[in-house]
Amino acid sequence: MAQQSSLDTWERIRNNPKFQAFVKKRNNYSILMAILGAIAYYGFILLVAYNKEFLSQKVAAGAVMSIGIPIGVGVILFTIILTWIYVSRANTEFDAESAAIVKEATK
């Protein structure tokens, strides 16, 4: 933050409406993803707490596997997939936008 040139850069980024819009867009996306993750997790926990019978029922008549097992494994897979979806969008689209804003301010 010390040099004059970089001070100007920060000033320009701060005043760029694109920056504000970018921060807002990415934050909304992060929060949406965090809420999806929390719903999957707390939904599962509340199911365990309040409706054990539902999780204990069989996947099909005559089967041994309960419906809780694919749901539980599903929560794990959902968590992994959600993380990758966020990371791939952030690492391409968001990073490109952020780089463009910085470039605009430094030129």
């Binding site: 929060i31 993803m33 965090a34 993750g37 999957a40 968590t79 993380t83 966020y86 990371v87």
Partner: peptide, 8 residues
């Protein structure tokens, strides 16, 4: 489940 929070 703690991991997504860290990422996002």
């Amino acid at each position: 489940v703690g991991w997504p929070v860290i990422t996002f």
